[in-house]
Amino acid sequence: MDGPRISTADRERALRELSQHFGNGRLTLTEFEDRSAAVTTATSLNQLAQLFIDLPVNTPGPSQIPAEPTVSPLAVVITFLTIAATALFAATGNPLSLLLVAAAVLILLIRRTR
Rank of each mutant, 00 (worst) to 15 (best):
D2L: 12
G3Y: 14
G3P: 03
R5Y: 10
I6L: 00
S7P: 01
A9L: 14
A9G: 09
D10S: 10
E12S: 14
A14W: 00
L15Y: 06
R16S: 09
E17S: 15
E17Y: 01
L18Y: 00
L18E: 02
Q20V: 08
H21D: 15
H21W: 09
F22S: 07
G23M: 10
R26K: 08
R26V: 02
L27S: 03
L29G: 05
T30M: 09
F32R: 12
F32D: 08
D34P: 00
D34W: 07
D34L: 11
D34V: 08
D34G: 05
S36L: 02
S36I: 01
S36G: 13
V39K: 01
T40L: 10
T41A: 11
T43W: 01
T43A: 04
S44C: 03
S44K: 03
L45T: 07
L45C: 07
N46V: 11
N46E: 05
Q47M: 02
Q47E: 13
Q50L: 14
Q50N: 14
L51Q: 04
L51A: 02
L51M: 07
L51K: 04
F52I: 02
F52R: 02
I53G: 03
I53C: 07
L55M: 06
L55W: 06
P56K: 05
P56Q: 04
V57K: 11
N58G: 12
T59S: 12
G61E: 15
S63A: 12
S63N: 09
Q64D: 08
P66A: 09
E68Q: 12
P69A: 07
T70G: 10
S72R: 10
S72C: 06
L74S: 00
A75H: 06
V76I: 08
V77N: 03
V77G: 00
V77W: 12
I78E: 09
I78S: 05
I78G: 03
L81W: 04
A84W: 00
A84R: 04
A85L: 06
A85Q: 04
L88A: 04
F89V: 01
A90I: 14
G93N: 06
G93T: 07
P95W: 05
L96D: 06
A102G: 10
A103E: 11
A104M: 14
A104V: 05
I107H: 12
I107W: 13
I107R: 10
L109H: 15
I110P: 04
I110K: 11
R111T: 15
R111Y: 13
R112D: 15
T113N: 15
